[in-house]
Every structure is written in structure tokens, then in C-alpha cells.
Design a protein around this nucleic acid. Sequence first.
DNA 1: ACCTGAACACCGTTCAAGT
DNA 2: ACCTGAACACCGTTCAAGT
Lengths: 234, 234
Amino acid sequence: MSTTAEASEQPRIPLNSERVLHAAVDIADEEGIESLTMRNLAHHLGVEAMSLYYHVENKAALLDGVVDVIISEIMEEVSTVDSPPPEDDWRRALRERILAARRVLLRHKWAPALIEQRSTMSPAVIFYFEGTLEILRRGGFSYDLAHHAMHALGSRALGFTQELFQPDDAAGEEASEEMFEAMADQLPYLAGMMIEIAHEGPDSTLGWCDDQTEFEFGLDVLLHGLESRLAASQ
Amino acid sequence: MSTTAEASEQPRIPLNSERVLHAAVDIADEEGIESLTMRNLAHHLGVEAMSLYYHVENKAALLDGVVDVIISEIMEEVSTVDSPPPEDDWRRALRERILAARRVLLRHKWAPALIEQRSTMSPAVIFYFEGTLEILRRGGFSYDLAHHAMHALGSRALGFTQELFQPDDAAGEEASEEMFEAMADQLPYLAGMMIEIAHEGPDSTLGWCDDQTEFEFGLDVLLHGLESRLAASQ
DNA sequence: ACCTGAACACCGTTCAAGT
DNA sequence: ACCTGAACACCGTTCAAGT
């Protein structure tokens, strides 16, 4: 799948932008997004770096294309869930849509940061939000309230939220804990929380993003709050 | 303030890490974060690039230091607001704290992305969250619920949320609109929303982040939702 | 103690050239 | 139509050396 193409005698299959983009996703998945360089990508495809520019305008366009691949994957995943019609239960329909999107991002942990970074107004992203808006409208939201709701959801609508501290390796976690202990006497509330809450191991699922239960808690708080607004508007 | 130090006959004031970090913030403010390179930073300080490594371990440490400068500025701003004691009105106290933090980020629009990117568990960040947790506790939250609440707030607790599409220049906006119009017939809900909602000009305040009214809407929805949870827990 | 110059290993990208 | 090689203008960083 992602084996580096070796110099072989077989006639070379010509590249196309689709193959380039999927190879880019594979590299990000397996080696991390920081390894996604033009030179490394070319190497994986058994080609010189400069050849990529025939299929992709530049690196920025490559990254936009990668985001599109991920969003397309999200669209596919979202289309497989069979929620109740939004007229019956918009809250459940929206919730399941968002959790489906999240499932895809769990397979590509580097993707949330990239999606935010590039804030791409691509067709794929637009279509995704069209579907989200449809649920809200069919659930009874005015355009105005639906618009606010989508802003309030923010990146959560796509299945992720950037969590502040989430050490990405064990070393980082250890360092944080040491620092924390050194300051514990000046941090009565945090210290109290640490004592009371069983720090239940590495449940974090989306890299430096939140883990599943926290994501669902925050999502449900928002959905509940939005429901109040909807009720007040009707 | 940020003028490049010229070759002058005055005896050179020796650098220190504080001056380095503040110069770095100035560069990010005035030239954009992408202009914050070791070489450019050194040039602004009238020094060779290699000199910086005497005061800062490497670029990663520089960026962590820059984040700390911003968080310190937030701490200062937050300390100037005189909210009611959280025992009387935790919701207002928390709201005003968050909006104060946001005011600082509006002065450093590049900062939210950097803060997320580096997810630094620095003393400054920890102290900020200690203060947030204090409000929740004194407002009646259990440690467990307060913990969930802080996750639910996420980066909003620091005064920002990363909005998905927010074109950063006029050209980008125009391009998006063209694309949108080309697809309008396949996007009935988004098209309907566009028609109904007056697209009230460039109100966006935090770069590709949300504008002030949307931020407050989302914040209030969350605070309301959290209040429900609190009431249910008491 | 503080700063420098040359050099290295990387980037993305251009341009003219090959098949 | 598709790919390449050499070169350019950048990065962050090392290391040995200067004052």
C-alpha cells in the first residue's frame, strides 16, 4: 500500500493528482504530517520531486487536496448512518452525523490541525455544511438561528475540537506532571481536582484533541443549549 | 519600538531572553507569524542569528516562550475586570473572564493558532486554568462537573475558537463567493440562508476565527447548558 | 559571558531540458 | 504528455572560534 516504489523494470504507471493526494494521506497517516514533504512524497511514488508539480500546483494546493480527501471520507462515513429524519429528532440526527465525522478523524489524527490551518472553502467542505444546515432547518430552526448554531458548533460540527494541553508523548506527560507537582501548593483548585478525579489513563483519542467522553459531553451541552434557543424561538 | 537596530556606535545593550521574546511578539504582530524566523528576529535585534541560541534553546522553545508572553498578557487583562464574586454569579464572572482573554487575542491574531499548535502545558497556562476552575468551584460545581465543563469550553476558555472557513483576504473571499454561486443550485439550504441573512460585511475580528457576536452566542449557549447541568447536579 | 562565520542538512520552487 | 537535473532562495541548527 505505502511501500516505496523501487526502481523496477515494469513500465511506470503515469501519475495523476488523485494518486498523489492519496499517497500524501498515507504518508501523513504513517509517518506524521511533518514528513509530508514534496521530496518525500515523490520518493514514495518512485518519482523525482519536480514531477509532482505537473499534477499539483504547489504544496498549498497539495494540502488543500489532502483536506478534500479527508472531507470526502467524512461524507462517505456520514452517509452510512441511518438517523431518524430530522423532523422527528434533529438533535439525534445531528449528534450521529457529528460522531460519524469524528470517527473518520480518529483515523487521521493530523487532519483536524490541517483542516483548521487551511480553513479551506472547498466544495467538499461546503457540501458537508449544507447537510448539517439541512438537519437544522428540517428540525425547525430559522435560517438565522441555524446560522448562529453552526457558528456555535464551530469545528465540532466536523467532529473535532482542539484541546489545549494534550501531551503527545509519554515524555511530555511526565514533564507536565513534574511541573504540576512543583507548583501544587499554589494551585489549590487544580490540585483538589487532581486528587478527586481518577486520572483514568490515556483515554485521549484524537491526539491533542479531547477524548470521546469529553467530546460527547461538550456536544450534548451545546445541543441542549441550542434546543433551548429553538424552543424559545418557536 | 520595533525598528530594526542599526549598526550604531553606542555600546550594545546585551540581549536577554525577555527582550528576545518581546521582539518575537512584535514581529508576529507587525509582519505576521510566518515572518518570525530566527534570522529575521536576530536582524530586528541587531544581532546575528546564532546569537539567539545563547538566550533561547531553539525555535520550539522560542515559540513556547512567545505563547507564555501572550498568556501573561491575558492574565493581566483578566485581573483588571471586577466581576461579581462567583458565589453570586459564576456565569457572569466566567463570561467576563473569557471576554477579557479574548480582548488580548484580538491584539495578537496569530496567537490562537500558535497556542493550539504548541498545546503548551506551561506554568502560565496552568495558572490561567486554575483561575477558571476557581470560578466554577466557587459557583457550586463539583470537581467532576467542573472538569467536564472545562473540556466543553475547550479553547473558548482562553477566548477563541477556530472557525472553519474565514478567508483571510479579500481575494479569498471573492473566490469563495464565485465558487459558491457556481454550486448554488446544488445547495438549496445554504443558498436560502445566504438570501435571508444579510451578509453584514467584514465583522470578523479574530482572523479566521469567529466574530464577536458569534463568539458570544456560542459562549452563552454553552454557559446556559452548563447551568442546566449544574442545577441538575444540586 | 556574550556573540560570530562558515558550514550542513534540510525545505519549496524556477527553469530549461529531456523523452 | 510526462518527467528530470541543476540551481536558487530560503529554513533551523552545529560547531569551533572570536572578544
